[in-house]
Write a protein that binds this DNA or RNA. Structure first.
Lengths: 192, 192
DNA sequence: ACCGAATGAGACATCGACGTCTCATTCAAT
DNA sequence: ATTGAATGAGACGTCGATGTCTCATTCGGT
């Protein structure tokens, strides 16, 4: 018997395949199943053996992304300390998942309300709660709704990921650019 | 002879078809040519008579979007007066085109550098120049590159459009939410 | 060295969307 | 009323991607 991680025989690392798929689909969202397979270094048939179809693959990616995002939220310690610092930590932790997040957000827009993974709601709730707490503690302005700040957070992370990908922004500046704009805005401020 | 606008016989208003297509594709980027035709109230055959194929349709939408964006830039009077006020006017003028802009930006990401309309470069240059001028005049912070501010501008406009579409943000708050976040950021400021 | 699971390569049928074409019909101009 | 352009509906054929299947091969465990 050669049982491994989940009690199943596995020569190809499911998680590694997902990584490769994420890396490719992040750059080319319309990539073929065949292209995904090649990118993962496996045959198309094998890819199908692990993921029933393109849908299943995307769902698995969604699951992976949500897990990593939740973990990023955990590591960032969203619920403790000054909220602006928490946002800093959040962006830092989210950076590695940024491209995947961007892909999934775009992909979700296509679903047009079919059946959205409830994980997104939980994620939104956590991020939104951070901004709300910051408002209650007088750290964030109250005229921008938590829902919008959450949305803007996703948007900026996505924009940042693409900007880095296209070389319009240096990878090392990713965190700084996003955090500074999200927290401080573009206008020159007397404080700080 | 029934010559009309551009010297051709036209029963269907080409521009109106483009509007309908934009409205639909904005919501459902993967819409079929048939769906687009139905949305425009015409037959699929007629749609093909006006736009050789899906590519041609998207290109036409790109052209339309670029024209409207350029006009929005013109109307906003980007080159005059305080730069922060100019950004306000810019967002206000861009709002009607926001969904289409969002669609085109996403669509362009798929092209993966094939042949991008040079119009985007011109647009980027104009917006970027606004931010740069603002920096030179001490209105905007200099630690955020104009390229990134431009990118963030697109991103926030897109996020805003989707947030409104999904009802997460009130349509009337669109401009305010974007402008305030882009200019002032989320952090509570002593000034203002 | 052996055995069986897992893989890779390819063949195959299917399906959806596309692009083209035909033909009857509508409609505006004359 | 007549004419011709333009449209709508539908029939095709085509193509790319998908999903399934088979079979030879590889590879790890024993």
């Amino acid at each position: 018997m050669s049982h491994s991680v989940y009690g199943r025989l596995m020569s190809v690392d499911r998680n590694q395949v997902l990584r490769a798929a994420a890396a490719l689909l992040t750059r080319k969202a319309t990539a073929t199943m065949d292209e995904v397979a090649r990118a993962a270094g496996i045959g198309r048939a094998t890819l199908h053996r692990h993921f029933a179809g393109r849908d299943a693959l995307v769902r698995a990616l969604e699951e992976l992304g949500l897990q990593e995002l939740e973990r990023a939220l955990d590591r960032a310690g969203i619920d403790a300390g000054p909220e602006d610092a928490a946002v800093r930590r959040l962006v830092a932790e989210v950076e590695p998942v940024a491209p995947l997040l961007s892909f999934l957000v775009t992909e979700n827009q296509l679903f047009e309300g079919e059946q959205v993974n409830e994980g997104w709601a939980r994620l939104d709730a956590r991020v939104s709660a951070l901004f709300r707490r910051g408002q209650e503690n007088g750290v964030f302005r109250i005229d921008l709704t938590p829902a919008w700040l959450t949305e803007a957070f996703y948007g900026l992370v996505g924009s940042g990921a693409w900007a880095v990908q296209d070389g319009r922004v240096a990878a090392k500046d990713f965190q700084y650019m996003i955090v500074e704009l999200l927290l401080g805005g573009a206008r020159r401020s007397v404080e700080k």
